[in-house]
């Protein structure tokens, strides 16, 4: 996981607001280390992910080192360290998908978007997750893109899926422009 948040981030204000909210919401917990996981779960439930500064805040509250918080959080699959993207791509790597090359599909998404699984693109449009079985093994290899099940997905289909989103976005932009110039 890349914990480096230093890239030019238009969401700094959002994170600041989140931290402000956190400061009050974590104060209800006793500062006992037993509360570490419940606190992390609550933060993720409210904000969708654990930012580095959120984890440091938890560490400060429990009087443990930030490293320790990160060690615990990174152990569990349930925690994510990047905000979920607008479009969430879940690539199945369950047994059936694994056997028919689900990892190639994952790799293709990762290469096309320039991020690793568990990460989010800088514009927060896409995030990639790997999941273990979505329950439709007969359709393997499978990816779930924004609740849409992409069945028997071929590596070349990856580009198509992302291209469709691009078209959609272009159209939206165009419409917005048109309505702007019309008014």
């Amino acid at each position: 996981m890349n914990m480096n948040h230093s890239r030019a981030d238009p969401w700094i204000a959002e994170e600041e607001a989140m931290l402000e909210e956190l400061a009050s919401s974590i104060s209800v917990y006793d500062s006992h280390r037993n509360n570490l996981i419940p606190m992390l779960q609550a933060i993720q439930k409210d904000h969708g992910y654990l930012s580095a500064s959120a984890m440091e805040m938890v560490a400060g509250h429990l009087d443990i080192s930030p490293s320790e918080v990160y060690g615990v959080a990174s152990f569990y699959n349930q925690f994510r360290f990047h905000p979920p993207g607008k479009h969430r791509i879940k690539v199945c790597l369950g047994t059936a998908c694994h056997v028919v090359g689900g990892d190639i599909i994952l790799e293709n998404f990762e290469r096309k978007l320039g991020i690793k699984d568990g990460e989010t693109t800088a514009d927060r449009e896409f995030s990639i997750e790997r999941v273990a079985c979505v329950g439709c093994c007969a359709l393997a290899p499978v990816a779930v893109v924004d609740e849409v099940v992409e069945a028997h997905i071929a590596p070349s289909r990856v580009e198509g899926i992302l291209f469709n989103f691009e078209l959609e976005r272009d159209q939206r932009d165009k419409e917005a422009q048109d309505s702007e110039s019309a008014s």
Binding site: M1, I64, S65, S67, E68, Y70, G71, S74, F75, Y76
Partner: peptide
């Protein structure tokens, strides 16, 4: 406050 820890799994 230890600086190092095991991370991931």
């Amino acid at each position: 406050h230890p600086v190092l820890t095991f991370a991931r799994r």
